[in-house]
């Protein structure tokens, strides 16, 4: 198992010397940093004019700071602080809401896993709705919903026959079953391999995250993901002020800019603080089991050991950390 490596990694200085999923360690390069600073000064005049549309009317300083912001794993603690403050200011400016954006690090000895009981899922989509609210998706209506519940005929496992847009008077429809699909947090994620700028990577707790401030929007990761789990912000998502969830995380549910990719992050803003993901909390049938894969006494480990489980498209070798099981 790939993620066992991370048990020993020192979480406290995670952001001084960033730890990557592959186990490589990048030490911030002082020379590069100096170069960036100089560029920042030299580029100040040049970027002023162009900044207005791309950064949505932010103040010049924030725009510049955002432009030259480094990749999350390479930022120093103070740089991260500055970035978080910028995010909060931008939310205030754009959405008119005071949000709190934090940076809770992963817990040592934790790798998240998810199991979903197919025989319990009844296709209510409560998880979808909870996710949209928790994760500050655009409400206009946005196509970025992370969870897609597929409706399939009994006796079918061919996803080409699935329908994710079912909308009957009542569910479950007789003769159908339901298969919710979201990011599988693959242990060998093809999306991470695909990204040309390392804007997406696997955190030590197994969550595959996106740095929305680093992604260039090439959408190659969307092409690489076998689960259609990645969604693109084709336009600036809008959220009414009263619907914004103010508890946000840098790698999680903070308001996203236009032109970047996003995906399910197991509610990183909640789960790193010990809470259950919003979808697990919302599921009225208890079909969703979430927990720490490294804890042999966790519910998820019980499911894996005692239930018939399967992974979607496991033949592709992506090693999903999301299992389906039946009673």
């Amino acid at each position: 198992m790939v993620w066992n490596n991370h048990e020993n990694s020192n979480m406290s200085d995670q952001h001084d010397v960033s730890t990557q999923s592959a186990g490589t360690v990048t030490v911030p390069d002082p020379h590069r940093r100096r170069l960036l600073k100089q560029l920042g000064i030299a580029g100040a005049a040049g970027t002023t004019a162009a900044s207005a549309p791309a950064w949505g009317g932010s103040t010049l300083l924030d725009a510049l700071g955002g432009f030259f912001q480094d990749q999350y794993q390479r930022m120093s603690p103070s740089e991260i602080e500055a970035a978080l403050a910028r995010i909060e200011r931008k939310a205030k400016r754009d959405l008119g809401v005071d949000i709190h954006c934090d940076n809770t690090p992963p817990q040592a000895g934790v790798v998240f896993g998810y199991a979903l009981n197919v025989s319990r899922c009844r296709g209510y989509r409560d998880c979808v709705q909870a996710c949209i609210q928790e994760n500050n998706h655009g409400r206009d209506p946005s196509s970025t919903a992370y969870i897609r519940v597929l409706e399939l005929d009994h006796g079918q496992m061919n996803l080409e026959q699935a329908d994710q847009y079912y909308d009957p008077e009542t569910v479950p429809v007789p003769g159908k079953y339901y298969l919710p699909v979201q990011c599988m947090q693959c242990a060998d994620p093809p999306c991470v391999k695909a990204c040309p700028v390392e804007a997406t990577w696997m955190e030590p707790d197994g969550i595959v995250v996106v740095d929305y401030d680093w992604c260039i929007g090439c959408r190659y990761c969307m092409t690489a993901c076998p689960y259609w789990a990645r969604h693109f912000n084709w336009k600036q998502p809008t959220i009414p002020a009263d619907q914004v969830n103010p508890d946000t995380h840098y790698l999680g549910n903070r308001p996203r800019p236009v032109g970047v990719v996003e995906k399910c992050h197991f509610c990183i803003q909640r789960t790193r603080k010990g809470r259950l993901p919003a979808c697990a909390e919302a599921c009225p049938t208890g079909a969703r089991v979430f927990g720490n894969l490294l804890d042999p006494h966790s519910e998820i480990r019980y499911v894996l050991a005692n239930k018939p489980v399967f992974q979607l498209k496991s033949e592709l070798g992506t090693e999903p950390k999301f299992w389906y099981f039946t009673d």
Partner: peptide, 8 residues
């Protein structure tokens, strides 16, 4: 084709 050409 990029969503964020400013980040090239």
């Amino acid at each position: 084709d990029l969503g964020r050409p400013d980040r090239l």
